[in-house]
Structure formats: C-alpha cells, structure tokens
Amino acid sequence: MNIFRFLGDMSHILSFVILLLKITQGKSAAGISLRTQELYMIVFCSRYLDLFWNFSSLYNSFLKVVFIACSSAIVYIIRFKSPQKDTWNPELDNFPIQYLIGPCAVAGLLINQDWTPFEMIWAFSIYLEAVAILPQLFLLQKQGEVENLTSHYVAALGAYRGLYLMNWVYRYFTEDDYLQRIVWFAGTVQTGLYIDFFYHYYQSKRGGLSRPVKLP
C-alpha cells in the first residue's frame, strides 16, 4: 500500500458517497447515467469474484464488498425506487453499452494474465472499467451543463484512477518485477477519457465561484 493508492481508494469511496447522497437526498437521478452505473456493477461483480479465495488483505476484501453493495444499491435506486426512477430519462441515457461490453469481453478472452476463466473475467472487468464512464460523459455532453454535485462525482471518479496511475509508477520504481501491463494500459485509457472533463471542471471551479461546468 502507498499513499497514491490509498488516496485513490478514498477518492473512489468519495465518488460513491457523493452519488449516493445526490440520489437519496436530492431524490433525483437527473444527469446521472444509469448505463454507466450498470457497467460499474458488472465491473465489480465480475472482478471481485475472488472475494471467496483471494484474502490478500482485509482492507481489499472489505472495500470489495462495499463497492459491490454501493454500485448495486445505486442501480437499484435509479431503476426501481420512486421518485428517482421517474427522473431517469431512457431517451437521453441511451448509450449502446453492448458495444462496450462485447469488445471488452473479447479482449478479456484474448489478452489476460492467465488462461483461467477467472483471469479472463478479471481482464474483462479491467477493460470494461476503462470505458464504463462513456455513457455518463455522453449524457453530460448532451446536457451541456453539469449539475454541481454531478461534476464533483465525475471529478472524484476521474481522480481515483489518476491516483492509481501514480501508484503504479511508484510501485514500478520501488518493487522488483512489478509488471501489470493490463491495468497500466486500461488505467491510462480510463484517465485519458476524463481529461476533457477535467479541463472544463477546472475552468468552472477556478474562480472559486461555483459556476456550472459547461461542456461544449
């Protein structure tokens, strides 16, 4: 464990807290992509199958349960709970996620760390996480303006993987034979997708005024 990875995990937890607060207190899922939340649920449920045999640390096992529980709760609330379910707009939030899941599944089959079923599923979850934010970014693009809490949610989510990139650099230089090309590649793509958002997020927050984040 190093400070970058710890801060990354805290940023990830913060993103869950912000989103859960928004949809439970704000009683609205407007501006939130259910598609992205469904992808995250698939990512965590598939990657953390090793909950039952990989006890590398209590910290990991605990957070795996937290992430599965939170992502499932968010999908449940937006899909089934009133009044949030009525604030979800299927016409707007209509990114074809099958075009993300399919290629990631093929990639997981072909490029993985071991030819075992779990390793293929694990690689699939790493690739899928890298692109899971796309439906959310498309939804924000369509709406042009980003609601304040939503902008903090996306920023925390982007920061989490950006901090993980720093963690991988740190581990590469401090540990022997540390090699994780799959997560390095996917994590770079994942963080890259946020660069445009971060630019607009920074511009809108720079003056200290909480001007709404505008996406062109």
Partner: peptide
C-alpha cells in the same frame, strides 16, 4: 510452473 497471478489491488 508459473504461479497464478495475485491481484493485490482493488
């Protein structure tokens, strides 16, 4: 033989 990869990160 190669030991299975250990995933020590989330």
């Amino acid at each position: 033989g190669k030991e299975p990869p250990v995933h020590d990160e989330l």
